[in-house]
């Protein structure tokens, strides 16, 4: 013989309840039919006893009552369901349930993201972004500090970039005069080591190309050398003659003075000629 399975209390109660309900439902069959017949009879009596216009009023009133009853039942059910769902949600960890039971990857794989993105109004989305605030929050210093500028520059084809630049137009817009005015040329030149470039200059070759004799001829032609010599020597001679004459006249007077005193003259000076 097969061993008896263990008896479940709950199943036993459920089976008993279901059997009892079925018995009651079958036993209530005549009652339900009687009630239905009574309803039909009542309806027929009312239809015969009551005037047609009163029937219509009664029928409208009945419909109203039924509608209100439906609304009451509907409200009660809504309240009950809301409370039940809230209690259930409070008890259940839906996120965890979804994470454990739903294959999200499979779901996402089935989603047509392109179509979704196509429906997104990116312009409007971007228009709502406050870029200033976003940039204000960015620590640019830290970001730049992490950038390997050397590597970035090494990847840049500077030749190609410069080839595309219209340097003539750029330079034409530059105010070179103002720029040069700001340059301290004296300080710049003072830092230049002129000795080195001058040491590389072949001065002998440069001088050999100069027409020194022609320059000398031009200079001599422009200078009135004989006139200068005449003036200078003449000036010297004039000064010397003047000095000799002055000294001689003073000596004349000195001698006359001495002789006059020796001879006891009152007026040692030479008189004016008669």
């Amino acid at each position: 013989m097969d061993p008896q399975p263990p008896v479940s209390g709950a199943n036993l109660l459920l089976g008993a309840a279901s059997t009892a309900w079925r018995i009651l439902w079958r036993a209530g069959g005549p009652l339900r039919r009687g009630l239905s017949a009574a309803g039909g009879i009542g309806t027929a009596l009312l239809a015969t006893a009551v005037e047609p216009d009163q029937q219509a009023a009664l029928e409208a009133h009945g419909r109203t009552v039924r509608d209100e009853a439906g609304r009451v039942v509907h409200g009660v059910l809504r309240f009950v369901i809301t409370q039940v769902v809230a209690a259930a949600l409070a008890e259940l960890d839906l996120t965890n349930l979804v994470r454990e039971n739903v294959d999200l990857n499979a779901l996402v794989a089935d989603v047509d993201l392109d179509a979704v993105v196509a429906r997104v109004d990116l312009d409007a989305a971007v228009a709502r972004v406050d870029f200033d605030a976003a940039v204000a929050n960015v620590d640019l210093d830290a970001a730049v500090a992490r950038v390997d500028i050397d590597a970035a520059v090494a990847r840049v084809d500077l030749d190609a970039a410069i080839a595309r630049v219209d340097l003539d137009a750029a330079v034409a817009r530059v105010d070179l005069d103002a720029a040069v005015k700001r340059v301290d040329l004296d300080a710049a030149v003072s830092r230049v080591n002129l000795d080195a470039p001058v040491a590389r200059v072949d001065l002998d070759a440069a001088v050999s190309r100069v027409d020194l004799s022609g320059i000398a001829r031009t200079v001599i032609d422009d200078i009135d050398l004989p006139g200068i010599i005449r003036q200078s020597t003449g000036g010297l001679a004039t000064d010397a003659v003047h000095e000799v004459r002055t000294q001689g006249m003073q000596a004349d007077d000195a001698v006359a003075h001495i002789v006059g005193r020796l001879l006891g003259r009152r007026r040692p000076d030479a008189p004016i000629a008669p």
Binding site: R245, G248, A270, I272, A273
Partner: peptide, 15 residues
């Protein structure tokens, strides 16, 4: 002033 205005001075022995 070897030759004062209006007069002539005779030269001395040195000159």
């Amino acid at each position: 002033s070897p030759s004062p205005a209006g007069s002539i001075r005779p030269a001395g022995i040195v000159t």
